[in-house]
Amino acid sequence: MELSLTWKDRLFSLSNGGLLILFSLAMVFPIYYTIVLSFTDPTEYYTRDLILWPHHWSLDAYRYLLGNGLFVNSVLISLFLATVGTLLSLLVTGGLAYAISVRRLRFRKTMMVMILITFLFTPGLVPLYMVVRNLGLIDSVWSLILPSLTSGWYVLLMKGFFDSIPDSLEEAARIDGCTEISVFWRIIIPLSLPAVVAFGLFFAVGYWNTYFNAIMFINEQNKWPLQVLLQNMLVDPTTMGGGENANISVTMNRQMPTETLKMAAVVIATVPIMLVYPFLQKHFAKGAMVGSVKE
């Protein structure tokens, strides 16, 4: 669209761009602050009031964390969840969503209603715990994947994307003798790549941030995902506990890690999942192209 720009257009672009840049900076400042703190010498942190740029840089926090077997292990667990879990989630969600997007399918409406009901009723924590226990999944990494494979939300949203793919394409493939599975695999998935990538990212972030299920279902420390370890470092027991035992909890010899160490842990916990994004951004773009080429 190489068209001459009016001054109105220019003004719009300018203010639009300016606003966006300001906005992004506001978004980023706290993160900048976190990163700076993670590289600050602990003594400096406690003695100086406001640190926007450290006087003494220190890598101690990172050295400590990366030398800590438990921490490294939890990163591995979280990576496992984010890859295997995401993949399974995409398959399960996509499969079900595709099936119910095919209009001629029998029991389609029943399945839809079934999904709708579940996403509105949240089962309590205790019943879920009992199911997981009865499946023998306590202390297994699968307890962090299986119960959170998908949700009514995701299935319906994905179905929405599949609905937007013209039926004629699928029909053509079926006439060519493709089975439903290969239609799904060869036509639907590539065509809804932007959606698949977006959902993949949703799932990956979800798994990466797995926390609550982990504290309930995982006892063994060497199976803790990263967020549990992080929470353990960031939150002191007394604030969550309180009540009758608060006084005694305060008395226990628990050393809270230094602030700079906490910040370094946060940086390590955040960076890997953030790095996924630029890799996928390419696919967003490609997916968008496929979308525009279709028909």
Binding site: L96, A97, M111, L128, L149, E180
Partner: peptide, 20 residues
């Protein structure tokens, strides 16, 4: 294709819901 998803809903949603 739909089966794993349906199983998921039955096991992790419907069974716990009965406990309501």
């Amino acid at each position: 294709l739909a089966m794993p998803g349906l199983l998921f809903f039955i096991i992790f949603k419907y069974i716990p819901i009965t406990n309501l």
